[in-house]
């Protein structure tokens, strides 16, 4: 799986910018195991040396991975299977008892699901755009300049990322209540920005760190102002970084539960996280509805994720940071 070698953001580890090979999967024989029958790698560079192992080790390896994959796949798989069963069969153990799409029909036509979906999309998309937009210049400044207040800003960003929801939720609730922002998408957007902005700024700094300073210097030589350099030369190079940052904040906001539950109350204002809870609680247990809604939420998310996941590793190794 040579995904990471194709991803554009690989100048992530500081050394990698000049030596992309470093992010290629290295074929290593790090674990116990003897020489294996050689297997052709797919699409990877011919290994310099093949980790080798015996049939037994090979079996163990596959067994371990299979068990892991099974555990990882089963809950979502079961959710999917259940969503096609009628209500009375929700907990039956058979794979397909009576295949039906009734649950989906019910979710889409008889519940506010689509409204919730719209709310979630609106809130999360706006949050993501605003967060990336607001924080990118800061990421750049932190990466390139030294200025008074820089250290404290870095610290602020770090500490803010540690904030438990519990420390802000009450004051935010009271303030939003005062300004009439509860139960409004705007309120939740502002709340999510408290999470997304510090995080995006920090992450962007990591990405900018991976762009060679030589580029800035060439800009200066050409007589560009720092803003010009940032806007014309550096930002275009940081596009993949922007994308990954955006993706992360998207995913985080999409799955947020606590603020969404406390701040959004009207049936029409719920987000998906709040809406899904209304199907299954102490007094109502519409598992059949819940499973169909869950699948409808999970599939687009998984598709987006599948598309973006090849960048994940890049994001994770982003930036050698040192203030």
């Amino acid at each position: 799986m040579a995904t990471q070698s194709t991803q554009p953001a690989q100048p992530l580890r500081s050394g990698a910018a000049t030596e992309p090979a470093a992010t290629e999967p290295a074929v290593t024989g790090t674990a116990p195991g003897g020489p294996p029958p050689g297997r052709a790698g797919r699409g990877e560079r011919p290994p310099r040396r093949r980790g080798e192992r015996g049939p037994l080790a090979s079996f163990g390896l596959h067994a371990g991975l299979l068990v892991g994959a099974f555990i990882a796949l089963f809950p979502p798989f079961w959710l999917l299977v259940t969503s096609f069963k009628p209500r009375s069969e929700s907990f039956s153990l058979s794979l397909v008892s009576e295949f039906s799409l009734d649950n989906y029909d019910h979710v889409i036509n008889n519940t506010a699901f689509l409204t919730w979906f719209g709310n979630s999309v609106l809130i999360v998309v706006v949050t993501t755009f605003l967060a990336v937009f607001i924080s990118s210049t800061t990421g750049y400044a932190l990466s390139r300049f030294r200025f008074p207040g820089m250290r404290s800003l870095m610290w602020t960003l770090l500490i803010t990322q540690m904030f438990p929801m519990a420390v802000l939720i009450v004051p935010l609730y009271n303030l939003m209540s005062r300004y009439g922002l509860l139960n409004q998408p705007v309120g939740l957007i502002v709340t999510y920005l408290t999470i997304a902005v510090p995080f995006c700024a920090w992450m962007m700094k990591g990405f900018f760190d991976t762009i060679p300073v030589a580029i800035d210097e060439s800009g200066r030589v050409d007589g560009l102002t720092p803003f010009g350099t940032y806007w014309r030369l550096v930002l275009p190079l940081a596009k993949p970084g922007l994308a990954v940052t955006a993706f992360y904040s998207f995913v985080t906001a999409w799955a947020e539960v606590a603020y969404a539950t406390a701040f959004m109350t009207g049936e029409q204002n719920l987000t998906l996280a709040g809406g899904l809870q209304t199907f299954v609680n102490q007094h109502t247990q519409d598992w059949h509805t819940m499973t169909a809604a869950a699948v409808l939420i999970a599939v687009p998310a998984a598709l987006v994720f599948g598309y973006a996941q090849r960048h994940l590793q890049a994001g994770l190794t982003a930036g050698a940071t040192k203030s």
């Binding site: 500081s14 770090l158 990322q161 920090w202 995913v251 985080t252 999409w254 050698a320």
Partner: peptide
């Protein structure tokens, strides 16, 4: 807060290399 997931990335600490 309440990171749904890990996405928040090691960006925080940046994987130091």
């Amino acid at each position: 807060a309440d990171a749904s997931g890990p996405p928040a990335a090691v960006a925080g600490g940046g994987v130091t290399a």
